[in-house]
Design a protein around this nucleic acid. Structure first.
Lengths: 363, 363
DNA sequence: ATGAAAGCGCTAACAT
DNA sequence: ATGTTAGCGCTTTCAT
């Protein structure tokens, strides 16, 4: 491992720099042999230059370095990983690249893995099982050294593939049944509890939970925290699930309003949205129908809007430490790569209730 | 003997297992040979199963399929790319994963490349030349079939590396001097012009341009559009550059306010921010100092806030078609991969002025 | 400290 | 329709 990392760092030092001037109109990709010839050494010496430079005589080292620079030689990682069985590459596969939460996670993962000398590739399953599988196969085929995965939301999952191929794996944000993988996630059960307690304290009683993929653990936990707290207060929980997308919030709230207007079910006093995108959909739909938040109905959600909240801190939310989820996951993965036998860990990071105007009780 | 070797290597790749209860005591990564043996065919037949299944007899196909499924065999992409010289993999390297603009670009690229059967890996240079180089070397080493790059902002760049290794490349968002690469970008010169014309039409005259990396082409264009339009109106342009980050907007505006308060320079009537993050910084700083937008000063920017603008359409912006930039870039890249000799293209996509409250002239 | 040879898992180019 | 052979570019092992 230490060796490996040193080699990788060498790689970086290598190669020339910016700028246009290339000498051959028909540039040819070179290999160890070309470098060896140019430096007047054997291919093994060139190999050692990258993998264990301390074994080279100073003079030899300089000659090889020269040849490498001149040719702007970059070792063929495929060939390398073919012989070594390892690639110095890690991957993060998220369920939704566009989601701010996963972006922050990605930053955390990147900062940590770069520091450890790995290259990180990011993949996006787009909440689609088939697409996730495709990514994982590409990754497995490339012999990535480890994967951090936010699994898609369905009943089925692809972690068996990773296990089958002995790929060290850490799950983030979402637990999965029956596996022995490390997990890092925010304490969203507690989040559901905090949000509900806050609303109850504000005097709301008719609180409904809206949106989220049924079955996915992050939703189950959030919903669970809400339901438990409601029941402890002697109230009946009520929920309408869907997806984590904005449209889900829109559709569900629209239906609620319709129900209220035709008298079948009264509008709740408060809504807890499954995440920020659902909250956005809910907010917009309420507004579109002339309902004011919080005067006519309160709204709260999970995950903050990074930018909107700075511009106008309006929505009450439970904030998850997304960046730290990424960092912790990366750390766990690096540990697991070094010691595949270590006991499984599940890191549950604390969440944070941020009370804002959208749940302020009108008097 | 070959077998012994293989076993040995596996041990290394996999690491020692702490003896405990694993489902597969011999969790072995299999190869074409294993599949061939199990299916009772030659390795070439297995290879053809993946590369040209139509060449197999129905019966043979089923036998191989069975073996592949049973072993959950995933071909070794490294070996594959080693023989074929390509990898069916494309990469997108952006300057900032966190930036909403690049996220939309990523989605566009993904949708297009997935449809074409490629796997896409996303990298993040974080506006750092060294980190970009590192990514590109990893990509080159892996023999990716093409790269879409939003180059970092400095004077120097790494595209020579890509050219040297014959990697088909498309630049997005930012032009570079002296290269023959395809480029896809928004027409931000026109954007600068539209924003300035709008402010002038609203009756503002003392307009200042704020933020952005000096030298990076997207900034040069935006600034250019602003300056040209100002001069055509007989006004003197004024700008204070910096970076594309929120802190840049904060710092510059803070200094402006200080200058205005100690009387050295009066506060401008309007600010054009280099992008949305800078605009955010400007807005927050103005507010923090008790200045109202647009009553005391108008603010406009480039790139929209996807979410904040829905919640509260406040900031006047020029919107770039980020998703389309991604799609077009992907298309161009696929074309170039097929025909490396085709003439260079520079696609400049139209931008869109969205007038909102932040520039409404107080009466 | 350096080199020669073998082989990682796969596919292109020929067989059959 | 299927099989055989010869590498792809690299690192491992075993010499020197």
């Amino acid at each position: 491992m230490g060796n490996n990392m040193r080699a990788f760092r060498r790689c970086q030092a290598v190669g020339s720099d910016a700028g246009g001037g290339h000498r051959h109109a028909t540039s040819q990709v070179s290999n160890v042999g070309d470098v060896a010839k140019r430096a007047g050494v054997s291919v093994m010496t060139v190999s050692r230059f990258f993998n264990d430079p301390s074994k080279l005589a100073d003079d030899t080292y300089q000659r090889v370095k020269h040849a490498v620079d001149e040719l702007r030689y970059v070792p063929n990682a495929s060939a390398r990983s073919l012989t070594r069985g390892r690639s110095d590459t890690l991957a993060l596969v998220v369920a939704d690249v566009g989601h701010p939460f996963f972006m922050s996670v990605a930053r955390g993962v990147e900062d940590e893995t770069q520091a450890a000398g790995y290259t990180l590739f990011l993949g996006n399953s787009n909440e689609t099982l088939a697409r996730e599988k495709r990514y994982l196969q590409a990754l497995i085929g490339r012999r990535v050294d480890g994967v951090i995965l936010a699994p898609t939301h369905g009943k089925r999952h692809n972690v068996g593939l990773l296990k089958r191929h002995d790929v060290p794996t850490v799950l983030i944000d979402r637990r999965l049944p029956n596996h022995e993988l490390d997990v890092v996630r925010g304490d969203t059960f507690q989040g559901g509890r905090l949000l509900t307690e806050h609303l109850l304290a504000e005097g709301y009683a008719d609180i409904v939970f809206v949106g989220g993929y049924p079955g996915v653990s992050s939703l189950v936990d959030r919903l669970g925290g809400y339901e438990r707290t409601m029941r402890e207060a002697g109230l009946e929980p009520r929920s309408v699930l869907g997806s984590y997308h904005q449209t889900s919030g829109e559709r569900i709230v629209k239906a609620m309003i319709a129900d209220a207007r035709n008298g079948s079910t009264s509008l709740p006093e408060a809504i807890i949205a499954a995440n920020n995108m659902v909250a956005l959909g809910a907010l917009l739909t309420l507004r579109r129908h002339g309902l004011r938040v919080p005067d006519d109905i309160a709204v709260a959600g999970f995950d903050d809007f990074e930018i909107a909240s700075q511009l106008d801190p309006f929505l009450t939310v439970v904030r998850q430490p997304a960046y730290d989820v990424g960092r912790e996951a990366a750390r766990l993965l690096l540990d697991r790569i070094q010691d595949s036998g270590r006991p499984r860990e599940e890191k549950v990071l604390p969440v944070d209730l941020v009370v804002r105007r959208s749940t302020r009780r009108p008097r």
